[in-house]
Design a protein around this nucleic acid. Structure first.
Length: 588
RNA sequence: GGCGCAGUAGCUCAGUUGGUUAGAGCGUCGGCCUGUCACGCCGAAGGUCGUGGGUUCGAGCCCCAUCUGCGUCGCCA
């Protein structure tokens, strides 16, 4: 078997060369006397010509082969006859007159065509993933993914980082996502957990004096899946000693700038905008705002608190707020459209949604009758409402109001085509709250993780007003997607103890769950911090993929199964006996 | 766990008010064809209508349950 070139390597300059190519048959066009075969490999396609006068003994081979057969072919690159160029093909100016061909393997008829525009049920694509992956679009996704991780390694190596591996079989820790567990045969009844992230180990590496660490690492979280969430996913995990927040963020901006330039030839502006969490929520209704478009949220509580509209007035009285967005040009929406938006608001917890359509002859609104002319004019003015706009209102507790409007803002943007795929809107969201109160658990829980450092300035608030304590935490956002996040870490035992106390973790619990980790901090832990990027999400954004499954070679379905291997599956009774495990399925 | 969409030939889909033998395009198979590139022409094969139950003289279609895939809320320190 010979191979001198990739299929897509040929241009008219190659005419006259004798070459050998290998690949899969894309399509065969049999004209009786002459047969054309499009041969595909990783690089693209080239047209092979079987002419009985050139290689008579191989003509029967060309008659026999079918799509996805694997061939090795040798022949002479030739300019195509006058007028026979195919401008839609990279190699459309030439073709290869085959002198010799070998069938390296036959193929069953594939269940679907191997083409970019296959319109095929994803279940079948996932079952035959190895065929789906032959499609050029998916191959490009993995080529870029490779280039991305290579670029990350190159950049970080140049900045004195060391790539160090951490355990996959590790300890289950409370807080955070549900763990994937691995039973121990040697210690029946005991379990490892697969890492949700290498968080604790990378901090130990800082105690170890590694100073600058990174790892491109698989992480596991046993939670429900989404279009951008898989139970196993890849992080670029980074940690540094002796740095402040600005140093970390500046370095990461430099990395993103280089990656986008080198891989996509896109220039991105640095430094990125730094938006405090409160401001992100107030102006955009999200802790990962999409800043490719404006449509900012405005607070109208003061304007409406004395109006006759009880719904608004009561919410404000109870400490909530009334906020609004201006959906430019959406006054044209039908009652049906507004009802759909109300329904959407309900999904995110709103009890209702009010709206005002600003029209030539005044405002039109189901709630107009509750307001005076002056009040309506003031509201429209406050929202910069012009004829043709629709103002959407939500009245609720602060967080709900923000989140609902944030999602309405995105929905309007989608409907109105405001989301430009070619725009890269990077920013940092900073100053996250350290804790949030969990109604379910009746206690405060860490919003990031319990090793995140509170802001020094907010330390006095730790005891009396934990919800007001901000953390030295930061998320990198691109086009409304959280692509990375991290924090400075607590490196002194006293602060860490206070945080655990606030999280209502008893000394015994802390000792049993984190004792092994905290002990390290008694031996001279340097100040340190870091962050982690979602590699899959970055590839998605760079390749404009709608699904994270398109950037993972063998992804799981929404119910966390693998359709290629049929995992998870039952195991032999012997395996369970060795592990001391008995399976008892509860019948519902 | 909740809400929503989908499941009919290998693939993508159509299928009327519940009524004889469930159709089309692509693909596949066979034949013809020396310049196609989604080649063309002629012919053929190919179906548990996701699964189970119910209503009915009769169900692809109506009802109930269930499975699978996708989206989403909860969840994801």
């Amino acid at each position: 078997m010979k191979r001198t070139h990739y299929c897509a390597a040929f241009r008219k300059e190659n005419a006259g060369e004798t070459v050998s190519v290998c690949g899969w048959i894309q399509r065969r066009r049999d004209h009786g006397g002459v047969i054309f075969i499009d041969l595909r490999d990783r690089s693209g396609m080239v047209q092979l010509v079987f002419d009985p006068e050139v290689a008579k003994e191989y003509f029967p081979v060309a008659e026999k082969v079918r799509p996805e057969y694997v061939l090795s072919a040798t022949g002479k690159v030739s300019l195509r006859p006058e007028g026979q160029d195919n401008p839609g093909m990279e190699t459309g100016e030439i073709e290869i007159y085959i002198e010799e061909v070998e069938i390296l393997n036959a193929s069953k008829t594939p269940p679907f065509l191997i083409e970019d525009d296959v319109d095929c049920d994803e279940m079948i694509r996932l079952k035959y993933r190895y065929l789906d992956l032959r499609r050029p679009q998916l191959q490009k996704n993995f080529q870029l993914r490779h280039k991305l991780t290579m670029a990350m390694r190159g950049f970080l190596d140049a900045k004195d980082f060391w790539e160090i591996e951490t355990p996959m079989l590790t300890a289950s820790t409370p807080e955070g996502a549900r763990d994937y567990l691995v039973p121990s045969r040697v210690h029946p009844g005991n379990f490892f957990a697969l890492p949700q992230s290498p968080q604790l180990f990378k901090q130990l590496l800082m105690v170890s004096g590694m100073e600058r660490y990174f790892q491109i690492v698989r992480c596991f979280r046993d939670e429900d899946l989404r279009a951008d969430r898989q139970p196993e996913f890849t992080q670029l995990d980074i940690e540094m000693s002796f740095v402040d927040q600005d140093t970390i963020m500046g370095l990461m901006e430099e990395m993103m700038k280089k990656i986008y330039k080198d891989l996509l030839n896109i220039d991105i502006e640095t430094p990125f905008l730094r938006l405090p969490y409160d401001e992100a929520m107030n102006r955009f209704g999200s802790d990962k705002p999409d800043l490719r478009f404006a449509m900012e949220i405005k607070d109208l509580s003061d304007l409406v608190k004395d109006a006759d509209f009880k719904v608004f007035a009561d919410v404000v009285k109870k400490g909530g707020c009334v906020k609004s967005i201006n959906a430019k040009g959406c006054a044209k929406y039908s009652r049906r459209d507004f009802d759909a938006l109300v329904k959407l608001a309900g999904v995110y917890g709103a009890k209702g949604m009010a709206w005002i359509q600003v029209e030539e002859d005044g405002v039109k609104s189901p709630i107009a009758k509750f307001f005076t002319e002056e009040q309506l004019t003031a509201i429209v003015k406050a929202m910069d409402g012009e004829v043709g706009d629709a103002l959407l209102f939500i009245a609720d507790q602060w967080e709900t109001t923000c989140i609902v409007l944030g999602n309405l803002r995105l929905e309007i943007a989608r409907r109105e085509g405001l989301l430009d795929d070619d725009k890269q809107s990077f920013l940092w969201v900073v100053d996250f709250p350290m804790f949030e109160y969990s109604e379910e658990e009746q206690r405060y829980v860490a919003k990031h993780h319990p090793f995140t450092s509170p802001k020094m300035a907010d330390l006095p608030l730790l005891a009396e007003a934990p919800e007001k304590v901000r953390a030295d935490a930061y998320d990198m956002i691109l086009n409304g997607v959280e692509i990375g996040g991290g924090s400075l870490r607590i490196h002194d035992g006293a602060t860490q103890a206070k945080v655990f106390e606030l999280l209502k973790l008893s000394a015994e619990e802390v000792e049993s769950k984190f004792g092994w980790f905290l002990r390290a901090f008694e031996y001279g832990a340097p100040p340190h911090g870091g962050l982690a990027f979602g590699v899959d999400r970055m590839v998605m954004l760079m390749r404009k993929c709608a699904s994270i499954r398109d950037v993972i070679a063998f992804p799981k379905t929404q119910s966390a199964t693998c359709l290629v291997s049929d995992a998870p599956g039952a195991v032999a009774p012997k395996q369970l006996r060795e592990l001391g495990i008995e399976v008892r399925l509860t019948e519902e």
